[in-house]
Write a protein that binds this DNA or RNA. Structure first.
Lengths: 179, 179
DNA sequence: GTCTATAGAGAGATAGAC
DNA sequence: GTCTATCTCTCTATAGAC
């Protein structure tokens, strides 16, 4: 699953095959089909594991950072780290483009993951209004989707240029708003 | 090429085949190979046409809108219209995810298109500083990559949810900054 | 759980007739 | 420019032995 996730995030869900996985892991294609009978099964397992991981990461940020500004900075760092030097984007972005070859269940899961992140960012901006650690907050309900869009767009920019600098310049102003 | 562009933007460059094109157009695969011998040729033709079109669109916006705020609003509308009700993203985004199956020439072209847009947005923010039609401008050099990231991220959001509303909420604050 | 072997579909691409 | 026909390759998936 580690390889599958990395491959999906690097080349899209259609961009890797059971054959690629078999070579990478060192077993045969048929053996992988034993664990994930169809690629649809694999896609479900991937997005579910991704959601669980992300939940833990977000909770971890809340536990280790008290102010909204510090939390938002940590979220930006989380997305930056997910880039793997510009070789991968986040699974939501990868699955968005592979939309046509994914089941409705998986599409709904991607949507749910997005909603979870949006809720977390919204709550962070609401906290920022109270603790004053994020500057120039207008409406948290609109700051959140704008922020997520910017993070995912910055991912794409870094992927296109295969350079983390593209991510950094795109998120610079957002970062500067956080104390 | 119209079909190929739409398909690439909807399903990724690997998400459609010469067979799909043949069915859509009503001729045979071999006939398409006559015009575009390899899929690499097709990808180059697509990105080149895209760049030319975009150049004209941006020039058109400049010609019909005097203030920076009006121009930025028009750019947001341009990206919104490119969504086709959430079924397609822009070609740069689509090609970013299909990165591994594209030639270096095409990757460089995508990069060039991005640079062109970035320059245009930067110039627009610089004008905004002078004419005061965009509020809360910090550094135009960083506003531009942040804006492009937000627009492309908003595209992804709308594509994921297959709903234009996702684009609208993500770009709402940016829109509100334009007079 | 892993293997060999293979089915069946579809991909990109080419040769050569018209 | 378009066609039929075909090549070669890779894909997902399955059957059945070990």
């Amino acid at each position: 699953m580690d390889f599958a996730e990395h491959a999906a995030r690097s080349r899209g869900f259609d961009g890797f095959s059971y054959g690629d996985m078999a070579v990478a892991i060192g077993i045969r294609k048929a053996s992988i089909h034993h664990h994930f009978p169809t690629k649809a099964n694999l896609s479900e397992a991937l997005i579910e594991r991704y959601q669980t991981n992300l939940q833990h990461r977000l909770a971890e940020i809340e536990a280790t950072h008290a102010t909204a500004g510090a939390r938002l900075k940590a979220l930006i760092a989380l997305y930056r780290a997910a880039l793997d030097d510009g070789r991968t984007v986040c699974l939501c972005v990868a699955f968005s483009t592979s939309r046509e070859s994914l089941s409705k269940v998986v599409i709904a899961k991607v949507s749910a993951v997005r909603a979870m992140i949006l809720q977390w960012i919204t709550a962070t901006f609401e906290l920022g209004q109270r603790d004053g650690s994020i500057s120039a907050i207008l409406d948290p309900a609109y700051e959140a989707p704008a922020t997520l869009a910017m993070l995912e767009g910055a991912h794409l920019a870094a992927r296109t240029e295969e350079d983390l600098v593209a991510f950094d310049v795109a998120t610079r102003l957002l970062n500067a708003r956080c104390q």
